[in-house]
Computed example of a mutant assay.
Amino acid sequence: MRAVCIANDPKGLADHQQSRAIAIESSYPLTVGKAYAVVGMTIAERAFYLLVRDDSGGPCFAHAGFFELFVAPLPAGWRFGLEAGIRASGRDLWSEPSVATWGYPELVEDPAHVQALLEFEPSALALFESYVAEAEGD
């Protein structure tokens, strides 16, 4: 599945697409007009994100509002997980922000994998890269 970038500044998103971190977010390393392989999706708080490899080569949970609208079948092998954030409210949402995740098995089934990606742990990055390469080959 691929998504074409149409924006990269979160301050330009509609209010309902912004996370509570909007005050400290800056432009994402994404190129407007470029197509990105999507290897996962998540809803955290009230925002919807696509997991792509950004222009610096790392994993990036980019706001779905940064991409053109598209319809695509879910890739073979993807999983879906409904997470604790679906029940969280108020302050609880800060500690359990993830509502739902779609994507490759480890992204959905291993709670430590997302944190490992965000911390650029080599084993998590290697796994991420293997799924990006597979998605780009489609």
Rank of each mutant, 00 (worst) to 15 (best):
L93K: 07
S98H: 13
A112L: 13
P111R: 12
A44M: 10
S19F: 00
G81I: 04
D54E: 09
I6N: 03
V108R: 04
P75L: 10
R53T: 02
D15W: 07
Y49A: 10
L74A: 15
A62C: 07
A35Y: 02
A126C: 07
K34Q: 06
G90Y: 13
H113V: 04
G103T: 05
M41V: 02
H16K: 12
D55S: 06
G77S: 08
H63C: 06
Y104G: 03
Q115M: 12
A64D: 02
M1L: 15
G90P: 07
Q17V: 04
E121T: 06
D9A: 12
I86F: 13
G33I: 11
L125T: 09
A37Y: 00
Q115F: 10
T101C: 07
G40W: 01
L69K: 08
S130V: 03
E129K: 04
P59M: 03
P97V: 05
S95A: 11
A35R: 03
L30Q: 00
R46S: 12
F67Y: 09
G65W: 04
V132I: 15
F48E: 03
F120V: 06
S27I: 12
R91H: 13
V4L: 06
I6E: 02
P10C: 09
V38K: 00
L82P: 01
Q17R: 12
D9N: 15
F67P: 00
R20L: 15
R91K: 13
A7K: 05
A112Y: 07
Q18K: 15
G90A: 07
V108K: 03
P111I: 14
Q17L: 14
A64Y: 02
P97T: 08
E119H: 11
E25S: 08
A3Q: 01
W94H: 07
R79H: 14
Y28K: 01
W102F: 12
F80Y: 15
S98E: 09
L117G: 01
S19K: 03
R79L: 13
A88M: 11
A3W: 00
D110Q: 15
V32K: 08
F70T: 06
I86S: 12
W102D: 00
W94A: 08
G137H: 14
A72I: 10
P105H: 15
A14G: 06
A64I: 03
E106R: 13
Q18T: 06
V38R: 01
L117I: 04
F66G: 01
P105W: 15
G90C: 08
D15I: 12
A112T: 14
G58W: 02
S56R: 11
A126M: 10
I86Y: 07
T42K: 11
W102I: 04
L117N: 02
A76L: 10
C60A: 13
S26L: 02
S56G: 11
G85S: 06
A76C: 05
V4W: 01
L30R: 00
A133F: 03
I22L: 15
S98R: 09
